[in-house]
Design a protein around this nucleic acid. Structure first.
Length: 276
DNA sequence: CTGTTCTCCTGTGGGC
DNA sequence: TGCCCACAGGAGAACA
């Protein structure tokens, strides 16, 4: 499922093909996503230009000259670009919900089998868009520092894994990378956030940055749903240290990886390497 | 404000 | 081979 690295890679993949281009037609076949696709999207976008694409948390922000298009890939969403030289384009398949056609013939296609994603339209600046309020800091930016994490964790009694995934302190860390980062930081996923000391937070900041940057470098990682933005067919699954490795030997101490449920989400950890 | 639970949806995989 | 069904999972919304 797309986490921050996949969203970032998607942004990098599609931006060169559509930035600065004029939209001539938007075709919405299935408006029933996580929230209904507003009819204003298909009505307003024709003749608009995509100025640039940005990412905030796991949201893709398409800065248009007349407003803001916001796309979240949810669990199984993907965007790909079909190039003019490959026309005629393949017929949209069952889960290809939205097409954007550009003046030069480029086509961007949104696919989302589970429909947990969203495509929204907002007339205003990104900082005023409701869903971007109350978001934590970007994990790969300077504001994400050990002391900042430590201070924020002090007033959280929930499990550190829960707090990471909430996105109130730091954004973009989903289930996979929360498991991985906590393993590399040597912190038990069920440890209360307020019980982390500054050293824990120092290791955790470093671990989060490392796993996210490594994933971006590899072109993103996924279980099975992610499709590379240029349509080349997705990536090989990244090698994980603990995620999905229940009962397999820990890469550090060979003890079996354990699996528990935290907030109805699968959590994997090594009881020897990760202290509560 | 904090913390918990519910909900959306469908492909996948295990059991028989 | 085919059928049934539990399950996974991001994150907003509703609720306590």
């Amino acid at each position: 499922m797309p986490e921050l690295p996949e969203v970032e890679v998607t942004k990098l993949g599609i931006a060169p093909h559509i930035e600065g281009k004029k939209i001539v037609r938007v075709q919405v076949r299935q408006p029933r996503l996580r929230r209904p696709v507003p009819s204003a999207l298909a009505e307003s976008l024709p003749d608009a230009h995509i100025v640039r694409i940005q990412r905030r948390a796991k949201y893709l922000l398409f800065d248009c000259d007349i407003g803001l298009m916001v796309i979240h890939l949810g669990m199984s969403g993907s965007l790909r670009i079909l190039l003019p030289e490959h026309r005629p384009y393949p017929i949209a398949e069952k889960h290809d919900h939205i097409d954007w056609l550009f003046a030069d013939g480029t086509l961007m296609r949104y696919r989302d089998p589970r429909r947990f994603g969203m495509v929204d339209w907002f007339c205003g600046a990104p900082e005023h868009y409701s869903l971007l309020q109350n978001q934590g800091v970007e994990p790969l930016e300077d504001a994400f520092q050990p002391h900042f994490l430590y201070t924020q964790c002090q007033r959280k009694k929930q499990a550190i894994k829960t707090v990471l995934m909430q996105g109130k302190i730091v954004v973009g860390v989903g289930n996979i990378y929360a498991n991985e980062a906590l393993f590399y930081a040597g912190i038990h996923p069920n440890k209360r956030a307020c019980d982390l000391n500054l050293q824990d937070c120092t290791r955790l900041v470093k671990a989060i940055r490392n796993v996210l940057q490594a994933a971006i470098r590899m072109g993103g990682s996924s279980l099975k749903d992610f499709v590379h933005s240029d349509g080349s067919g997705g990536y090989f699954q990244q090698h994980y240290a603990v995620y999905g490795k229940a009962n397999q030997a820990c890469v550090q101490c060979a003890r079996p990886i354990e699996k528990i449920t935290i907030d109805a989400r699968s959590s994997f950890f090594c009881a020897a390497c990760q202290k509560g």
